[in-house]
């Protein structure tokens, strides 16, 4: 008797998002669960964006410092350095705008964004500092400054989505909508944003990321449920690409910072730190992320290899 592989049938298809001006990249477009090419289309490999910040980072541990400290005082140089490392997209986090940091003005951010856009070819993701009120002041200004560059702007949340979504729409950008680890809230936020007239086809869900060992399973299962609701149950509001903001969460953990002297049984700090980010990232690919925002080039290298191998055949 011949064996036929049982196949799941899907009712939904994730919209394809293209971003960038000169150089364009694609995410989404699939009609199957992650990497299950035998069940449906999986047209684009998940994309990894290199994270840079708009000012010298205040909380990068030594393993990141040794990679980026020679370039991080200038975001343009930093972005170009990432391009030289093979970055396909850059994610600029406007950390200095946070009131607890330098509380930088929206106009300063806009200038930096303009400079970066004029100097690099890579598609750009522009992220606020995750401060609800401040982001709603900063992101509209940078969305306007980057008009025509077809960026991804983020993150719109329940408390600030109106101004941010409106400005992303006016600037012609795609938008990351972030809710706090809850599939129902993710759906609700997407309903509210689309009710404003924002195109569903330009939305990206951030279900709120986490790092391995620090609530990782919550993000994983929420992503999994979002993907299943969208593709199998045909829930159109959740049939949307997802981003995992991996680096931001991983590089705060003890495992990427504790020295070998402090905890000798944990082994090499370098290996441990790199693998912590890579493993977190690879797992989120399996739960459905199409876009990863990461920091360490070696971790990105491992994750890319993982993607290549899963996409073989």
């Amino acid at each position: 008797m011949s064996f036929t592989i049982p196949k799941e049938t899907y009712t939904g298809r994730i919209p394809e998002i293209v971003f960038g001006k000169e150089k364009k990249v694609f995410i989404g477009g699939e009609s199957s669960l992650p990497f299950l090419k035998f069940e449906g289309d999986f047209p684009h490999k998940p994309l990894i964006a290199f994270e840079i910040q708009d000012d010298i980072p205040e909380d990068y541990p030594d393993e990141l410092k040794s990679v980026y400290s020679s370039v991080w005082d200038d975001p343009v140089r930093w972005a170009k350095y990432c391009e030289s490392l093979g970055a396909e997209a850059i994610a600029l986090r406007l950390m200095s705008t946070h009131p607890d940091s330098k509380n930088a003005k929206p106009e300063e951010s806009a200038d930096k964004v303009k400079r970066i856009l004029s100097e690099i070819n890579s598609p750009l993701i522009i992220l606020g500092s995750n401060h609800t009120e401040k982001d709603s002041e900063v992101l509209p200004v940078v969305a306007d400054a980057s008009r025509g560059y077809n960026c991804i702007i983020g993150k719109a949340q329940e408390g600030n989505y109106k101004t941010i979504a409106a400005s992303a729409m006016a600037g012609g950008h795609s938008l990351i909508a972030m809710s706090e680890l809850d599939v129902n809230l993710a759906k609700q936020l997407n309903i509210l944003i689309t009710q404003m007239g924002f195109q569903k086809e330009k939305l990206i869900i951030d279900p709120m990321c986490s790092a391995l060992g620090y609530g990782f399973e919550y993000t994983y299962s929420v992503m999994e449920r979002i993907r299943i609701a969208g593709l199998i149950q045909g829930d159109s509001m959740l049939c949307v690409p997802m981003v995992a903001d991996v680096g931001f969460y991983v590089w705060k953990t003890k495992e990427v910072q504790a020295t070998e002297e402090d905890i000798p049984e944990w082994g090499s700090l370098h290996e441990r730190a790199v693998i912590w980010e890579a493993v977190t990232a690879c797992c989120f690919l399996l739960s459905g992320a199409e876009l990863l925002i990461m920091r360490h080039p070696e971790a990105i290298g491992i994750t890319k290899k993982f993607i290549e191998q899963l996409c073989l055949s």
């Binding site: 599939v183 129902n184 809230l185 759906k187 609700q188 309903i191 509210l192 009710q195 609701a229 149950q233 829930d235 159109s236 509001m237 959740l238």
Partner: peptide, 12 residues
């Protein structure tokens, strides 16, 4: 449980 709850479920 056939559709996923969201506060605005009646509006879509």
């Amino acid at each position: 449980g056939k559709t996923l709850y969201a506060h605005s479920y009646l509006e879509i």
